[in-house]
């Protein structure tokens, strides 16, 4: 393996730190995230309240810490869902061809014709929103794209001669999939997955912002930003703090994605999405 690119290291470290902080959140937060303290409301950032307080006197820093895990779970969870459903579908479509492929790809085309946010809205509009449901909705939104990518990768690999060599040995479908296709498929799939995490976090927090994610008093970052709107002029820090943390997380994840791309397939560099 080549040396690990710097981008991967730097991004990975940042993401790792955020994950650790999110996991330890409840224990290391200086204050209770939903402890009201009306005497200390709308305080600017200070040494006691690192990110200031909100309209209920709650410590914004503690709330940000407590809410971190939502964004992480959203990003990674939703992506894993889309991976787990999308990749097998795509590989099956590549393998089977014929009617199965047609049916799967028509379904994919249909779902791609619906703008992502709309699909998310549709699914969440009619149920009680919450972290799990939002994660599921976002995951489902990205299933078609993963299916398409997995199918393209599968088709490319199936055209390689070494796969035909395996067929010439009479190898069964399972062996070909497991030993010939998958070991060569995972680099491009990993790269695609890492890109999806960014989008999943974005979509998830946007839906939460609109009120369709975790509900108050949870301190999901998108929700916090939404709740900060009435106080934008007096206490901008209530919205800025979670917003900047969200940006940091997204940049870090993006950088990790670029690093993975450099590591696993330099040819894809600069192709963006």
């Amino acid at each position: 393996m080549n040396r690990i690119p710097r981008t991967l290291l730097v991004g990975g470290v940042i993401v790792g730190v955020i994950c650790i902080l999110a996991a330890l959140g409840p224990w290391i937060a200086p204050f209770e995230p939903d402890a009201f303290n009306m005497r200390a409301r709308l305080q600017p950032p200070s040494t006691t309240y690192w990110f200031g307080t909100d309209e209920f006197g709650r410590d914004v820093f503690s709330r940000v810490l407590a809410g971190a895990h939502h964004s992480l779970l959203m990003g990674f969870g939703a992506t894993i869902i889309s991976l787990v459903i999308g990749v097998p579908l795509g590989l099956i479509a590549a393998f089977r061809r014929g009617w199965t492929e047609e049916a799967i790809m028509r379904g994919v085309d249909l779902m791609i014709s619906i703008p992502p946010v709309l699909l998310g809205l549709l699914i969440l509009a009619v149920t009680e929103p919450g972290l799990l449901k939002t994660m599921l909705a976002v995951g489902l939104v990205y299933v078609p794209i993963m299916t398409r990518v997995a199918r393209a990768v599968g088709l490319d690999l199936l055209a390689e001669d070494f796969v035909e060599a395996a067929r010439a040995r009479g190898e069964g479908g399972f062996h070909i999939l497991a030993r010939e296709i998958l070991p060569n498929a995972w680099p491009p799939l990993i790269v695609e997955t890492s890109l999806r995490v960014t989008f999943a976090i974005l979509l998830g927090s946007a839906l939460s912002f609109l009120g369709l994610g975790p509900q108050p008093p949870d301190s999901e970052w998108g929700l916090m930003i939404a709740e900060s709107r009435p106080f934008i002029s007096e206490a901008p820090w209530i919205g800025l703090a979670p917003g900047l943390c969200l940006c940091l997380l997204l940049i870090a994840v993006n950088v990790v994605g670029e690093g993975l791309r450099d590591l696993l397939d330099p040819r894809l560099r600069g192709r963006g999405h």
Binding site: T198, L202, S205, A206, F209, G222, I225, A226, S228, R229, I232, S233, P236, G239, L240, G243, L246, C247, L250, I251, N254, V255, G272
Partner: peptide, 23 residues
């Protein structure tokens, strides 16, 4: 800048832009 813009969520942009230009 591309890196940067892609990483900032839309709704946050809105907030930032409101804070900056409006407030």
């Amino acid at each position: 800048m591309q890196y940067f813009f892609i990483a900032v969520p839309e709704f946050f942009w809105c907030i930032l832009v409101i804070i900056f230009f409006a407030v």
